[in-house]
Amino acid sequence: MTDSLGQQKPVNIKAQLQACRSKEETFKALVTLSKTLPRLSVEEKTEDNKVKGCESAVWLIMEENDGLRHFKADSDAKLMRGVLVALLSLVEGKTLADIQQMDLKAELAELNLSSYLTSSRTNGVLAILNKINTI
């Protein structure tokens, strides 16, 4: 189920989220997904790694190897950790050029996560997308 980074394979995540028929099912799927996200250490949760604009605290770290980008992230809110699992599965191991060509908003919408894409300050997914694109 998990690869070397401890993250689920994108295909499973996609299938799990797309099978959700209601907001409640999406909620439960995100809770399940959240448990697969490796937590960041206290040292990694720096102010620099924090994504501004989220009401829940979100940290995002990127490491680049041979042009391929690898992400780690964490949040103090469980559903946000579930969203991060889905989001990182889309961009993990890609080049910056590849990531910038993706329509991440549309891809998240396909995963039934549209309600997390409003500009409301309650969820800073847009801020995370922005950071992923500019980090």
Binding site: F27, E55, A77, K78, L79, M80
Partner: peptide, 21 residues
Amino acid sequence: NIHILDLNAYLDSQGVAVRAG
């Protein structure tokens, strides 16, 4: 140990509108 936004999200999924923040 439970984030209020997580509680709020479940309440919302059940049609219950409250304020978390």
